[in-house]
Simulated scan of single mutants.
Amino acid sequence: MKRLINSTPSRGGRWLLGLLPFVLLGMLYLSLSNARLAENPNDPLLPTPAKMAQSFHHLATAENARTGEILLWSDTLASLERIVIGVGISALIGLIVGILNGGLPLVRAKLSPLVTVASLIPPMALLPILFIAFGTGEAAKIALIVIGVTPFLIRDLQGHALRLPDEQLIKAQTLGASSWQVLLRVLLPQLTPRLLNATRLAMGTAWLFLIAAEAIAAQEGLGYRIFLVRRYLSMDVILPYVAWITLLAFLLDQLLAWVSRMAFPWYHASEGDNA
């Protein structure tokens, strides 16, 4: 008898099993929406899919009377710019400090406690300080993403560097490599694909910080728009925006996965990771 733990679905079966939860959630939403609207046709809390599609189409096509911009695309561009810059800065700092902490014990002794303490500070608690220090412009929002994401990346890369076989470091030094050559030619190539994977894991947290910052102080952005219309209970706008944010996050995740597979196929072969 074949054990359940050894049973793997086919490619088509994986798609069907993956879609099943979404179908069930959609059916549940439709049943709740129909029941609520049957009692009150003007109830805004659970709008029909047609109503949400109509509102989303309006936001994606109609120009703002005051600015002349199309709201959905201006919000999307503003949010994507913030998150790409914030995550990019976090990845760069995480890679540099992670390599130094993982490869140089003297640096690790100085910086590792600081990174550990920084990772324990709730970034949202620092948001008022960031607004005071940087104002309510772009710098504060990007800084919140950097503060929230960078310690995680540093600790992940540092831990991965420390788990590398000692034989690699010993052989490199036996062949005459200096400390910097070991960092650049042994650690850097192996930590870069790990950085991409860690960045994928941190992307959800980065979106959380971005939405929170935009909700408090912004003039455009996906988070700003959601919290702007919540006072009117405009669920026909909020729910499509949440779905749009989810789609954008998924596309960014898949882009990082594609870059990782194309640039570092050996890493995914050794990890057995095809995601």
Rank of each mutant, 00 (worst) to 15 (best):
I121R: 08
L222M: 09
L210K: 04
T205D: 01
L100G: 12
I96N: 10
P44S: 12
E220M: 02
S33T: 11
A263V: 14
L77S: 15
V186H: 05
L187T: 01
D253F: 10
W73D: 03
A133Q: 06
A38C: 15
G13I: 00
P151Y: 05
Y267N: 12
E63I: 12
T174I: 13
A139Q: 05
P113G: 02
L183N: 09
P189V: 02
G68C: 15
L16C: 09
A38S: 15
P105A: 08
G272A: 08
P41N: 11
F22A: 07
R163K: 03
P151H: 03
R261N: 04
A109R: 14
W180H: 06
Y224T: 00
N274W: 07
F250T: 05
Q158V: 01
A269C: 08
A118V: 11
A143Q: 02
W244H: 11
S270D: 09
Y29V: 08
T174R: 14
I5Q: 14
A269P: 05
L19R: 05
I85M: 03
R108D: 13
A269L: 11
L208P: 01
L100I: 14
E81G: 10
G94M: 07
L175R: 00
A133C: 04
Q190P: 03
I216T: 13
R108I: 02
P49N: 08
G135L: 01
L188S: 12
I83D: 01
P165S: 06
T67C: 04
Q181A: 10
I170S: 14
A177E: 13
L16V: 10
I245K: 02
E39C: 15
D156P: 00
L251V: 15
A133S: 10
M124L: 15
P151Q: 04
E220C: 00
Y267E: 13
L46V: 08
L210E: 00
L120N: 12
A218R: 04
S74V: 03
T8V: 12
L195H: 10
S234M: 15
L252S: 06
L191H: 08
M27Y: 06
S74K: 09
L195S: 09
T136E: 05
F56R: 04
S74N: 11
G135M: 01
G103S: 08
I70N: 15
G103H: 09
S31W: 01
A78I: 11
R66I: 14
R261H: 09
